[in-house]
Design a binder for these strands. Structure first.
Lengths: 203, 203
DNA sequence: GCGATGAAGTTACTATTGTCAACATATGTT
DNA sequence: AACATATGTTGACAATAGTAACTTCATCGC
């Protein structure tokens, strides 16, 4: 790496465009950015992207996939080390999930948008499930130790994912608490309530 | 109504455009429909809409508001009559919520989209809360009768809305169950799990 | 070495779009 | 009857996604 600045063939434009697109995604207009502006920032002509992506939708789909991977990494990184209870692990990872969304609102929205789905439905679903795999494991383990109620694992997984998804989006939209001040607290409370629905009755 | 076919001033173009736009919203491209196509279908010139809406975003925002109202109506209509328990009422309205979303996916997405939010943030939040008011009442009542755990009402409301929102969106995206076949069952189970998190311990 | 082959970029063009400004026509108020 | 206003229309503009045809360059068989 660290080649001379001006190559005539840029080296790795595909990567560069994805990177710049990811930056632009974080800005105000979400993924309504223009392919031409993207090319401008990457320092190439406005049709260069077509050598790497069939169309804009494909580019967006790629970003969404990357987003799913980052979510997976974020969840794994948030898992607390050894002496933590399963409950603590679950809570911490749930918080990380919500934080990932609120920290990258446009990316998160894109990951579940109809636009991205249209261009990468299958792969997106796979990568999404891969991201959630850690939580699924945790649920399985929790049923084993008696921490969680016995139920079909996919039922609890569905409930958990849906809950996290909803908390994340409503928080992003400023719709969660009665006001923005208490929205963090509302999110935290919502997570507790989810857990109470998943956990076995206290002995 | 039922005027002669060709008026020079159309009568109520604003309403007509909202109606046609609502139809187009249900089609494949969501709210990516073009203002010109909308005008074409309404039988007017491509700039007629600007006499009624400042720009496309405003039109979309209006649709989103209408959507919130329809959601409110759908929830109210789903409330079961007299001899139903609070639990039954809550469940039935929850199902209605999810059904509303899956029956009008693009409208539902629009209602929570960044696009609509940008043009009607305040009013959208109000109308959304109005739609949910029935559920809030139910929660308050449920705390009173001892059906629900005692907690800040807004905490349970947040958890409930988030959960419904998540179930609705994931179902729409075909991400809920392990496969599409069991997605209905997954949604139903998720609702049960939510309730178990809200309800007081059985005596 | 070396020439051809194809990948990576560019320039020029098309069809479409949102929006604006200037104009036209109906409506209703006085 | 005449004017002011709301409602529509025509025609333009700048910007966009995408195509086609051309150029440049790097690599691989020889």
């Amino acid at each position: 790496m660290n080649d001379e600045p001006k190559r005539y063939h840029h080296g790795d434009l595909r990567r560069a465009m994805l990177d710049t697109a990811m930056e632009m995604l974080a800005e105000d207009n979400g993924w309504q950015f223009t392919l031409r502006e993207l090319a401008r920032r990457a320092g190439v002509s406005h049709t260069a992207s077509y050598k790497h992506f069939p169309d804009k939708a494909a580019l967006l789909a790629e970003l969404a996939l990357i987003g799913m991977d980052r979510l997976r990494v974020a969840l794994l990184a948030a898992r607390p080390p050894a002496p933590a209870t399963l409950r603590e692990q679950f809570l911490e990872m749930s918080r990380a999930y919500v934080r990932f969304g609120t920290a990258n609102p446009n990316l998160y929205r894109l990951m579940f948008s109809a636009d991205a789905r249209a261009a990468a439905s299958l792969r997106l679903k796979e990568r999404g499930e891969a991201a959630l795999a850690v939580l699924v494991e945790l649920i399985e383990e929790g049923q084993g130790t008696g921490w969680l109620r016995r139920r079909e694992v996919y039922e609890q997984t569905s409930a958990g994912w849906a809950h996290l998804h909803g908390v994340t989006l409503l928080t992003m939209d400023g719709l969660l608490g009665p006001d923005t001040v208490r929205s963090d607290h509302a999110a935290e409370a919502a997570l507790q309530i989810l857990l109470e629905g998943l956990e076995a009755e206290k002995s």
